[in-house]
Structure formats: C-alpha cells, structure tokens
C-alpha cells in the first residue's frame, strides 16, 4: 500500500522524529511504501509533494498540534491519531487502515 504520513508534537524536538522513525520502520516491516513528513522545530522536512499525496491510498496524521497545509489532503482518506499512539501501538494504526 502507498501511504503518506505527517508527524507533529508540541515542542517539535523529539517525538515528531521518534514517531516518524517508528512509522517508517513498521510500514517497511509490513511491506508498505511510506513517506513521512515531519513538522517540528526545524519546520517542514521531507515535505509531501502533490504527487506523493495524489498517489497515496491513505494518509496518517500522528499529531498533537494543528499542522500546516492540511488542505493538501482534501480528497484523501485520513486517519488521525494522537502522536503518542505512534509510539505506543504503531502496529494498531496499520491494522486500522486495512479496514
């Protein structure tokens, strides 16, 4: 499956990146193709392009704060979870998107 994701936490120092690393790893293990955009203290990194989003079957938002450019995802199926979920039970998120 082709997946895009965005992670963002309150200070943007640690959890944004930990969650991104976690999602990438689990997705790879499950054989998905994922690209994770981080919105942290350094601003937006690994930015999702229009074509990334258009090609994705689903978008995962693991966020604690409002993100920039949410409108980019209009028309895409989005699953939004608290960022902690990506650390606590990342597998669960991927189970959820199968349905």
């Amino acid at each position: 499956m082709k997946i895009v994701a965005v992670t963002a936490c309150p200070t943007g120092i640690a959890h944004t990146y930990m969650a991104a690393a976690r999602l990438e790893k689990i997705a790879k293990n499950l054989g998905h193709d994922i690209k994770v955009e981080t919105q942290g203290a350094m601003g937006i990194e690994n930015k999702l392009t229009e074509s990334d989003i258009r090609q994705a079957q689903i978008a995962i938002f693991a966020i604690d704060i409002e993100i920039e450019g949410r409108e980019r995802f209009n028309g895409v199926k989005v699953i939004q979870v608290p960022l902690q979920e990506a650390l606590k039970n990342p597998e669960g998120i991927f189970v959820k998107i199968q349905h």
Binding site: I13, A14, H15, T16, Y17, M18, A20, A21, R22, K25, T38, G40, A41, M42, E45
Partner: peptide, 14 residues
Amino acid sequence: HMQVFSALARKLMN
C-alpha cells in the same frame, strides 16, 4: 543542533 536532536530521536527507535 536541531538536526542532531532529530537524528538522535530517530536513533532512539533503534
């Protein structure tokens, strides 16, 4: 420095 921090945060998942 923030790049170091984010790299460290990612590595902690390893």
